[in-house]
Simulated assay, not measured.
Amino acid sequence: MPLSPLSTDDLVLSALHSMRTLVGMEVAFVSQFKKGRRIFRYVEPLDNPVALHVGDSDPLEESYCHRIATGQLPELMHDARLLDATQDIAATLALPVGAHLSVPIRLSDGDVYGEFCCFSRTADPTLDARDVETMRCFADITAKFIDQQAREEQRRDELLSRHTAVLQAQRFSIVYQPIVHLDSGRIVGYEALTRFLDEPVRTPDVWFAEAAEVGLQQALERAVLTKALSQLERLPAPSYLSINASPETVLAGALQQALGDYPLERIVLELTEHTLVHDYPGIVEVLSPLRKRGLRLAVDDAGAGFASFRHIVELHPDIIKLDNSLIRQIDTHQGYRALADALIRFAHQTGSVVIAEGVETQAQRTILKSLQADEAQGYLLGRPAPIDTLV
């Protein structure tokens, strides 16, 4: 199993611990200068002997950090109590402050974020210039971590603002792609697909991934489902409507709310997930009463990876959709053709219907018919289009 990447907090605390241990100090911390205050952002160890806590703050100008950053105090003090310039700082005698080592944290834009600091309540005459240089290295590394975190937070804020605006103004549209019965050539259903209107232009899968990143996945999916289902009655009966939802949205109950009183026998749910689902029993439990009322379940991307095979085994879908990466070479590559053949035979043996996605050539359609695939969709058979052009 791959190791989880360390967070910025973990990395900064590790740097503080390493420096504090190296110089034998009692406490290490990273402070931030903000709006005239010194704020303690990271403290190591948490159970330090001077009871310094993350989130504590004090006036910036009255702090060691500010005076060191502005050159009023030296970066290295063997015993702060012996310096005239520290006598008006309350902490000097209150803690007391003995050995003190601190350097500014400078961000990539040149601004001083705050200070990287270690101190003890006792003096230490052994500290030297090499300790200061070592601390500069740790401070530079910490600055990179903080810079990266700031960029990530800015990106997240921008994503949240963008997706909130899209949701509030419903700045997306639904197009419907025909699904065709291969033998008869008649349209048997339509898949509802989302198109986003905002800049920068990105594919729908990126939009949904970003929504998940900022905690708006369920809200976005629910809004899309509501808009897609609102046109069901306009589709010619008895054709069905295929909608997409993630396992998270299903488990949260948003799907049931969106489906409401719609005729479930005319609806197919495509479970969208490209990685392993961690709660198959939960999904089965949620979908069971809906499937008893006529809702059909489809698993897409079959042939594109292991996850889709696990979905098929665990969820017993009514429909298995062959991924377009498989269909793209089905008429030119024996291996892809053999895999498609095996999936189609497996589906039929387990009572599932097979839909081939991404059919773009007559040769692909001919091969799929010979392999006895049931239905297909793709540019050859019909492009996604607004509902008004279909009815």
Rank of each mutant, 00 (worst) to 15 (best):
96 P>L: 10
164 T>G: 14
254 A>F: 03
43 V>C: 10
169 A>L: 08
40 F>C: 03
202 R>F: 07
257 Q>A: 13
139 A>R: 00
258 A>E: 07
202 R>S: 09
49 P>G: 03
232 L>W: 07
156 R>W: 05
60 L>W: 06
259 L>V: 07
234 R>E: 13
346 F>D: 06
38 R>W: 02
86 T>E: 04
145 F>S: 02
178 P>H: 06
233 E>G: 11
244 N>T: 06
390 L>I: 15
150 A>E: 13
33 F>V: 03
345 R>N: 11
289 P>M: 05
216 L>F: 01
335 G>F: 07
378 G>N: 08
157 D>N: 13
378 G>E: 08
92 T>F: 09
16 L>G: 03
323 D>I: 08
227 K>H: 10
230 S>P: 08
241 L>V: 01
332 T>S: 15
123 A>L: 00
69 A>R: 02
179 I>E: 01
288 S>K: 15
342 A>C: 09
274 H>M: 05
115 E>D: 12
267 I>H: 08
85 A>K: 12
221 E>Y: 02
22 L>N: 03
141 I>D: 08
334 Q>K: 14
370 S>T: 13
390 L>W: 01
288 S>Y: 10
228 A>Q: 10
75 E>V: 01
275 T>C: 10
107 L>Y: 00
281 P>N: 09
367 I>P: 04
67 R>G: 01
15 A>D: 12
138 F>M: 14
99 A>T: 09
30 V>I: 15
69 A>Y: 01
331 D>N: 15
191 E>M: 04
248 E>S: 14
361 T>E: 07
220 L>W: 02
334 Q>D: 14
4 S>P: 05
287 L>M: 10
132 V>H: 00
65 C>A: 13
191 E>I: 04
376 A>W: 06
309 F>P: 04
154 Q>C: 05
23 V>W: 05
136 R>C: 11
74 P>R: 10
247 P>K: 01
58 D>Y: 11
198 D>N: 10
46 L>M: 11
236 P>A: 15
70 T>V: 12
310 R>H: 13
203 T>R: 12
129 A>G: 06
219 A>W: 02
23 V>D: 06
170 Q>L: 09
178 P>R: 05
261 D>C: 07
24 G>Y: 07
260 G>I: 04
365 R>G: 09
26 E>W: 07
24 G>R: 10
363 A>T: 11
83 L>V: 06
136 R>Y: 11
20 R>C: 11
220 L>E: 09
18 S>M: 11
386 P>I: 09
130 R>Q: 15
158 E>L: 13
179 I>W: 03
331 D>W: 03
127 L>H: 02
349 Q>W: 00
119 F>I: 07
136 R>Q: 13
87 Q>A: 12
338 A>H: 12
163 H>N: 12
150 A>T: 12
280 Y>A: 10
327 I>R: 08
83 L>H: 12
350 T>I: 13
121 R>L: 12
124 D>H: 11
238 P>H: 06
58 D>S: 14
211 A>Q: 06
29 F>I: 04
173 S>I: 09
259 L>E: 10
107 L>A: 02
382 G>I: 06
